[in-house]
Amino acid sequence: MAMRIPLQIATAIIVLGGISGMVLPEYHLRLLNLSLISAVAVIGLNFAFGYAGLISLGHAAFVGMGGYGLAILTTTCGWSPWLAAPVAIAATAISAGLIGYPLLRLRGHYLALATLGLNVSFYIVTSNWIAMTGGTNGIARIPGLALGSFSFSGEHQFLWLALMVLALIAAAAAALHKSRLGREMIAVRDDEIASEMTGIDTTRIKIEAFVLSAICAAVAGCLFALHMRFVAPEDFTYAHSITYLAMLIVGGEGTIVGAVLGAVLLTFLPEWLRFLGTAYLFFFGLLVLGILVFLPTGLVGLGQRLSRRSAKTPLLASARAPEATS
């Protein structure tokens, strides 16, 4: 019973992603892969922002740490990506814990500014530490992932890897939502003083949310490095952090389905608006602004509203279940 919703979400991701993979042309498949990578990162951001209420504008730095970690370990040290990825993710998690401990004493705007500063620092370090990161030239020739003779290098092949990872992360996030830790994160966001008064160590919970968020970001970073076979500082700027935040808010913060929907929509939207030429940025901004103003609970909130009026479809039911109390 407890695993029903996580399994539903994971199944929906694999089925919908698999069907899309069969019908989409190569270029759109590439976008789909990028959107799935972003979705992994945005689910991570949902732990910090959606659940625990930590406004992070430095999420792309953790994506970058994962990506650079894998790139350095595979190219400079010659490790297998299978070994490099967990090490890069663990290193990012430890970094997030060390950074989070002093940083999470800050709240609201101050935390947002501090995390923004973290992202800017990451960009400066990766741009200037040429011996380690290749500077602005980045790191190329990252080896692809292979399982025996099967290589995940093509867009179709990579899609299955991205879908499996996203399904796993989304299912874990859905399970966590209904767990003790999930409730404590939500409690901390809802009322920090009442949380303390309920015996919750709010500092520990915030650090755990931040580290979980960074782990997902690092997973996304590893996927990105394996997909692009190249990483550079421009892939992990604060603008990317803001985009992740926009994806979460547009999809529906505090929700797993919202995180995935937002990531897919905001990755494809510029493509769908390409016919507008150079004016697309204006309409893209206007559309995002419209969603923020008129749908403050995001697309999932809209779905919930519509589903109250009509019969529930299986998709909406699975979308609502984890967020039933939000």
């Binding site: 809802d190 003083i193 109390t325």
Partner: peptide
């Protein structure tokens, strides 16, 4: 002070 996004039981 209650946790608004959690149910009564939660």
């Amino acid at each position: 002070r209650v946790f608004a996004r959690l149910s009564v039981l939660e």
